[in-house]
Simulated scan of single mutants.
Amino acid sequence: MITRYVSRLIIRKLCHIRKISTETDKKIASVGIIVIGDEILRGEVQDTNSAFLAKELHNLGIELKKITVIPDNVNTISEEVIEFSKKYNYVLTTGGIGPTHDDVTFEGVALAFKEPLVLHPDLKQICIQFYKNENPSSMKMAYIPKSSKLHYKTKSGGKLRYPNVSIQNVYMFPGIPELLKKTILEAGSLLFKSDKKFFSKCVYCNLPEYEIVTELQQVVKEFPDVQCGCYPKLFDSSYKAKVTLESCCEELTRKAHARLLELLPAKSVVKDDTND
């Protein structure tokens, strides 16, 4: 009986260790964003999509690794998609989806995966309903890479009017900010998954960053798994530096935050989110 009891304890212990190990070994999902458009490169239109996506993807526990801006060129799009697709779990493209001659994202992505463009019946009907005709330009958005998938579902159980189109790990979004935001807010959590979540804390100081370098270095040394960033604020009477602490472990982030508050000079902290 004693032997069996000890054996059960050992098994439970091993299972517990294995579970912890599994959780620790889980990697953060990575993403790369490809912004497509000559108008962005010429400065005619300001890119707001990548900033919005960075924040939303971060909230989903996905780490943004790189943002690149490229022209409306089929070969350039293809080359960038190939590189990003190999490096990151998810690739998001914005722009280049529409009825005009310079909307060539579908062509570029199809070339990257060596697939032809084919007319999708669902998209054909959507384009007919929207444009009220079947002209070649009206049908342009209905031709997508052959193995593409259409994503209609929203987190509320509804359906997107125009689905997101993806192939392998590449998800193609329109460049119009209002349309992109609508799709991400309604379906982003269904499209992009991560086993991790980011936990962050902020501290606002009335000292410039060069006066708290020693304290920051000490926190970085003691908590190597916590990302520490310091951002100066010029010409602001409320604070002079914002310090952020972030990791995928809530307890570790909390401890690093407490340690920073302990190290900083008395009365140097204007505001912090200890109770958040």
Rank of each mutant, 00 (worst) to 15 (best):
F198M: 04
E178F: 14
Y171V: 02
K193W: 04
N164S: 09
E211K: 11
K201Q: 11
K201R: 12
I167Q: 00
S189C: 12
Y171C: 04
L185D: 09
Y210W: 10
L191K: 02
N169T: 10
L190V: 07
L160G: 02
E211W: 01
N164D: 11
L179V: 02
L190K: 05
D195L: 15
G188Y: 03
I176L: 14
K201M: 00
P177F: 09
F198A: 03
S166H: 13
K197S: 15
K196D: 00
G188F: 04
P208I: 04
E211T: 09
P177R: 02
H151Q: 09
L207M: 11
V165S: 09
L150M: 08
G175T: 06
V170L: 08
K201W: 00
L185C: 08
K196E: 02
Y162M: 11
K196I: 04
N169Q: 01
Q168G: 11
A187Q: 07
L185V: 07
E211L: 12
L160D: 04
A187Y: 01
I184P: 00
A187D: 08
L191F: 02
K182I: 09
I212H: 01
Y162F: 12
M172T: 01
S189T: 10
S189W: 05
F192E: 03
S194N: 01
V165Y: 13
L191Y: 07
M172S: 02
K201T: 00
E178V: 15
Y162A: 14
E178G: 12
P177V: 09
V203A: 13
A187V: 00
D195M: 13
T154E: 09
S194V: 00
G175M: 02
S200N: 11
Y210T: 12
Y204C: 11
L179I: 01
F199E: 03
K193V: 12
V165M: 10
D195A: 15
K197E: 14
F198Q: 03
R161L: 13
F192W: 03
L160N: 05
F199N: 01
N169K: 03
Y171G: 03
E211F: 07
G157C: 10
L180Y: 11
N206D: 10
L160C: 06
S189Q: 12
S194W: 07
T183I: 13
K197H: 14
N206F: 00
K181D: 06
I212A: 05
L185R: 07
L207D: 11
K182V: 10
S194M: 03
N164F: 10
L150T: 15
S200D: 08
K153F: 08
V170F: 07
L160R: 02
N206E: 05
T183K: 12
Y162Q: 12
K181A: 10
Y152G: 06
